[in-house]
C-alpha cells in the first residue's frame, strides 16, 4: 500500500516537465504519459494511447505491466505520473466513471455463496439501476448462464465463473468494457463463445480492451493491439502490421529430415535463407522471411525427394518475439 497522503494524480514533480498536450474529451479512454512505479520498480513506463470503439488487445508477457495498466484505466490504481482520462474526466478517485465502465478482473474470487443471478443482481443494485432484476436476467442471458443461474458460484467451473463475472460487468450496459485475461481457464468452446460475444458488443459501438499473454487470442479477436513489454509500449496499432513485424524478423528453425546434408545443400542457394548450420547431426537454418522460407523449404524437399520429419522454430516463444519488438 502506498502513502495516501500524496495528493491525487498529476504530472507535478514526476519525470521531466513536458508540455501537456490537450486531451481529447470525446475519447472513451485516453492515457497521457502514464507511468506507475512501486518504490524503485517501474511497472508501467511512460505510456500514451487513445482507445477507440472496437476491440483492442493488450498483449504482453506475464509481469509486463498489463494488469497495472488496466487497473489504472479502471481508476483503481493511482498513476505515479501522467494521467488516465475517461471521457475527459480523470479516472483516479472518481467513482462516477463506473457508470461507463464494466470491469472484469483477473482474480477469480467471486462471492461463493451467491448464485450467478444474485451476483448479477448485486451488481445491478450497486449500479442503482431502475429495474435491477430485469437488468440482471438480461446480463445472465447475454453470457448464456441461464441454466446455472440459480446455483451458487462456489459450484461453478472456471469458465462459468468467468461468465458470471462478465455478466456482473455488463449489467449496466457500459460503453467501455475492460477485461483482464478473460480467456484464462476457458475451454476452446467457451473461448469461441466469448470471442463471438465480444465481437457483437464491439459491433454495437462499445470500446473493449482485453489483456492477454497469448498471441493467438489477440490475433483472433482484436483489430487494434497494444504490445507492452517490461512496462513500455513496444508497439501499437493495427494487428496485421504488428504481426508482419513479428513474422519478418530473423527466425531460426531446427529441421530433421531423411537426409539433412542434402537438404542443407539445397537450402543454401535459396534467397530467403541466409545461414545454414549442421552441428551434431542437427540442421539449423536462419531466415529473414518467414513466408518465403516455408514455401522454399517445401520446394527444396520435394525436388530432392526428401522427407521432412520435423520443422521447429527454435525461438518462437513469446518472450523472444517481444524482445525483438523492443529492440527495434
Amino acid at each position: 500500500m502506498t502513502d495516501s497522503a500524496i495528493p491525487g494524480w498529476g504530472t507535478t514533480g514526476a519525470g521531466p516537465a513536458r508540455p501537456a498536450r490537450p486531451l481529447d474529451p470525446t475519447a472513451a479512454v485516453e492515457l497521457q504519459d502514464v507511468s506507475r512505479w512501486y518504490g524503485n520498480v517501474v511497472a508501467v513506463n511512460d505510456i500514451s494511447f487513445v482507445l477507440t470503439p472496437g476491440i483492442t488487445g493488450l498483449l504482453g508477457p506475464n509481469g509486463a505491466g498489463k494488469s497495472t495498466l488496466l487497473h489504472m484505466i479502471a481508476g483503481l490504481l493511482r498513476p505515479s505520473a501522467g494521467q488516465v482520462v475517461i471521457r475527459g474526466a480523470p479516472a483516479w478517485r472518481d467513482p462516477a466513471i463506473y457508470r461507463r465502465i464494466g470491469l472484469v478482473p483477473e482474480r477469480e474470487a467471486v462471492y461463493p455463496f451467491l448464485t450467478g443471478r444474485q451476483f448479477a443482481l448485486l451488481n445491478a443494485r450497486l449500479q442503482a439501476l431502475p429495474e435491477p432484476e430485469i437488468a440482471a436476467d438480461r446480463a445472465i442471458a447475454r453470457v448464456e448462464l441461464t441454466d446455472a443461474a440459480d446455483r451458487p458460484i462456489g459450484t461453478y467451473s472456471k469458465g462459468m465463473r468467468q461468465r458470471a463475472k462478465i455478466a456482473g460487468a455488463l449489467v449496466h450496459d457500459p460503453p467501455i468494457l475492460l477485461l483482464d485475461e478473460p480467456f484464462n481457464g476457458m475451454d476452446p468452446r467457451q473461448r469461441l463463445q466469448m470471442m463471438e460475444m465480444l465481437r457483437e458488443m464491439a459491433a454495437a459501438g462499445r470500446t473493449i480492451l482485453f489483456s492477454s499473454h497469448i498471441l493467438e487470442e489477440v490475433e483472433r479477436l482484436a483489430q487494434n493491439v497494444l504490445v507492452i513489454v517490461a512496462g513500455r509500449l513496444a508497439a501499437s496499432g493495427d494487428f496485421r502490421a504488428i504481426r508482419k513485424l513479428m513474422t519478418d524478423r530473423p527466425h531460426t528453425f531446427t529441421i530433421r529430415s531423411s537426409d539433412d546434408r542434402r537438404l542443407a545443400a539445397g537450402l543454401v542457394g535459396t534467397a530467403a535463407v541466409y545461414g545454414v548450420e549442421l552441428t551434431d547431426g542437427r540442421l539449423s537454418v536462419r531466415t529473414s522471411d518467414f513466408g518465403a522460407f516455408t514455401r522454399a523449404l517445401a520446394g527444396v524437399a520435394r525436388d530432392a525427394r526428401l522427407t521432412l520429419f520435423e520443422v521447429r522454430p527454435t525461438d518462437e516463444d513469446l518472450e523472444s518475439v517481444f524482445g525483438y519488438l523492443v529492440q527495434r
Binding site: 479502471a74 481508476g75 463506473y98 470491469l103 482474480r107 462471492y111
Partner: peptide, 15 residues
C-alpha cells in the same frame, strides 16, 4: 485480500 472488494469499489458509489 481476496479481491472481491473490486466488485464494490468499481461501482458508482461514494466510498
Amino acid at each position: 485480500d481476496d479481491g472481491t472488494a473490486v466488485y464494490l469499489l468499481a461501482k458508482p458509489i461514494a466510498r
